[in-house]
């Protein structure tokens, strides 16, 4: 069965990417993997990081996956995973791990500078993935 990977971060473009995949029948009869990446903690010199940041990120990740799963409720083969670290790296690792045939993602996620056409994570995944990448514009 072909494997399609949907990286999500709870942003509008990532939701749109799922909807586009559904609309265009790209997910029909496929093994669907949703991944969300919890950012690793970046220590900033001179600041003490609240442990709540980690909890909040974890909680957001769970909500993101729940939302994505709800959109894909009609599909029988959905696997949802959370990884921790750099989003681009983790998405690429996971894609190789499962041998993804296609990655569908939004042109950008939650990062700032939303006017830029291709976000840093999408760009990294697109440039380094072994499989085809469908970039959905909203």
């Amino acid at each position: 069965m072909m494997k399609v990977l949907l990286p999500v971060d709870g942003s509008e473009p990532s939701k749109n990417a799922i909807l586009k995949g559904i609309e265009e029948g790209l997910l029909e009869g496929k093994e669907i993997h949703i991944i969300t990446v919890v950012p690793g903690i970046v220590p900033v010199e001179g600041y003490i990081l609240s442990p709540h940041v980690d909890d909040t990120n974890q909680q957001l990740a769970e909500e993101t996956l729940t939302d994505a799963k709800a959109l894909l409720a009609d599909y029988p083969n959905v696997v949802a995973v959370t990884r921790k670290g750099d989003p681009g790296t983790e998405i690429l690792h996971y894609a190789s791990e499962i041998g993804a045939d296609l990655i569908i993602m939004g042109h950008r996620g939650l990062g700032t500078f939303s006017k830029i056409f291709l976000g840093s994570v999408s760009s990294r995944v697109l440039n380094h993935s072994e499989c085809s990448v469908y970039i959905v514009k909203s």
Binding site: N127, E130, C131, V133, Y134, K137
Partner: peptide, 25 residues
Amino acid sequence: TLLGSVSSKVLSQAKSSVLIVKEGE
């Protein structure tokens, strides 16, 4: 280079979605 200059420019400026097909999948 992983993404050619034409693909890269089209991808960043297109109004529509873009599917980039990689070789040797």
